[in-house]
Every structure is written in C-alpha cells, then in structure tokens.
Design a protein around this nucleic acid. Sequence first.
DNA 1: AGAATCCAGACCGATTCAATCAAGTATTCG
DNA 2: CGAATACTTGATTGAATCGGTCTGGATTCT
Lengths: 153, 153
Amino acid sequence: MKLTVRGEYALRALTHLGVRHSAKVIQISSISAAENIPKRFLEQILNDLRTGGFVESRRGVAGGYRLAKPPEKIVIAGVIRHIEGALAPIGCVSENYYEKCNCPDEARCALRSIMKEVRDSIAHLLEKTTLADLVTRAEKLRAADLSDADFVI
Amino acid sequence: MKLTVRGEYALRALTHLGVRHSAKVIQISSISAAENIPKRFLEQILNDLRTGGFVESRRGVAGGYRLAKPPEKIVIAGVIRHIEGALAPIGCVSENYYEKCNCPDEARCALRSIMKEVRDSIAHLLEKTTLADLVTRAEKLRAADLSDADFVI
DNA sequence: AGAATCCAGACCGATTCAATCAAGTATTCG
DNA sequence: CGAATACTTGATTGAATCGGTCTGGATTCT
C-alpha cells in the first residue's frame, strides 16, 4: 500500500513550485536543495511531470520549471496516477489501470468487493484535493510555526 | 499504493477457510486448487498466517489448516499489517510502522498532512471489516450467482 | 563562443517479489 | 513398526522494481 519515494518527491516538488507560483521559473538545483531531493533524480522526475502536463520548463541559462496550470487545476490523484500508476490496491479494481486478477471468478470475489471500497475511498479523497490545497496547507503550517516562535519569544 | 500478490493470496485463503469454518482442517492442496494459488507459495503464506495467530494447523496425514479464531475476530487491517506491513501510503504517517521521512520539516509538511488523511480513511475501512464480512460477501455473491442461474433456466 | 540549464535515455547496485526446492518433523493408518 | 501424508523451515532463484547516477546532447543567455 505504499507510495514510492519518486511519487513523494514529485508531490513535494510540485508543492514547492505551487507555493512560489508565478511566471518566473525555478531551477532544479534550487528545488533540490530546499526540498532535500537528489538533484539528478529530481531532474528525471520533473521531466516526467512535464510530459504529464503538470509543469512546463524553460531551457538555457535562465531556465527552470514552473507550473503548467494554476494549482487549483492540478489534481493530486492525477499526479500520482501519472507518476506511480493505479491508485487501487489491486489491479482488478482499478478504474484507470485495470488488469485481470487470477481469482477463479472475478465477479463473485469477496476480496475484490471490499478492495473496491478501499479504492473508492482513496480515489475520492485524492480526486478532490488539488495542489492548491497542498499549498494552502503548507502556508497554514508555516504560519502556525511562526506564531509558535512569537509565543516562545 | 499496491497490495502484493502475497497479501491477496493470504486474504483469499482466509476467506476460503472462513466460508468453510469448522473444527475440521482443510489441506493446502485443496485451497491451492480451489483458489488457483501456487501450492508451494501458499504453503509459505499459510505458515506466515499461523505465526500471526490467524490460523492454526494440524500436521500429519489428516492435517491441514483452520481459522485460529472466529471470523468476526479476524480484522482485515491486522492481516494486511502482518503480511505486508504498513497500511499508510508513506512511512511518516504510519501508526504501526512509522519511519522518518527526509523532508526538511516533518511537522510542517503539507504532503504528510494529506497522506495522513488517506491513511486514516484506509485504516478506518479495513479496521472495521472482519473476515466475517468477507465471508458474508462471498456467500451473498454466490447466492446472486445461483439466482441468476435459476433465472436463466 | 562559453557557461548554465534542461532533455533523453542508458545504466547500475540493491532490494523485493513471486515462486520453487529440499530436507525435516509430526501424525495417522495399515 | 513403517510407510504414506501433510505441515515446517529455510535456502535459493529469476525477474522486476526501486532509488539513484552518468553521459551526452540540445537550448538559451551573455
């Protein structure tokens, strides 16, 4: 039931771009340093996000990445599907990456029926949250941090 | 976000035992044949389920496996945790298999905050469903099948 | 031209996965 | 008892995946 590190990095990088969303591009090395992600690996991931249409890039000396659309339009479920594949815990209940399972009778498989519920609950949650939500959370958590600091002083 | 085949087999085997729950034991080969699971592999998995306290075994010529407790007492979340590990999509939001992630500040990580929701929704679902539910579903699906057959005739 | 930056894809070592095998132990039955 | 049966334990294997690096190229700015 795990998200790979690759997916985690992708979402962290997107959040980074989302918080700083503007016409300006941000360099890989800058994201890599701030988010503690190996640069070469991140390079690969951002490229993948680009082919997925989530970010766009600028080459050359003043190059970098920025979001390809506003954060509200970037759905987390879509990002994970692009980077990782199915959301569903088993292939035979996946809507987007269905594959037949080897149980004797799929239509009458009890496991399938409960795993479908799991899938639906995951999908429902990730389908309704967008990068904008992640950004909001990030900012809210940051604000909480600052007020804590005030309180301590 | 995937359950491994191993986990799937474990749950299918348990369901098989649940439907036929009694004092009598059932042989590996019988389960293997009915559920279309490689025998040697299933052997390994049932053993694992035994050390987890979900099934108990009888050796020798009339040997086999049966549930170690009534189906209502076997919680699906527990089975998956024993066979697969964490339910949570990332380690830093797991209650039972926590591991630190490499983001700069875990307490203020937006991704963590949303993945925690995913974890909770998965855990909530799997924590409240027991093997008894799987058995009920299996029987209900089977009944639907039979009435279909009647209708056709 | 030269430096900085993204782009494309091969490559690699380690781990995990699914599955098999071999040898051992317990139990029943003739 | 002894043979047959079935679980037990742990090693092994081949393939796939994972996290990550490396090389070499294409673009753009100065």
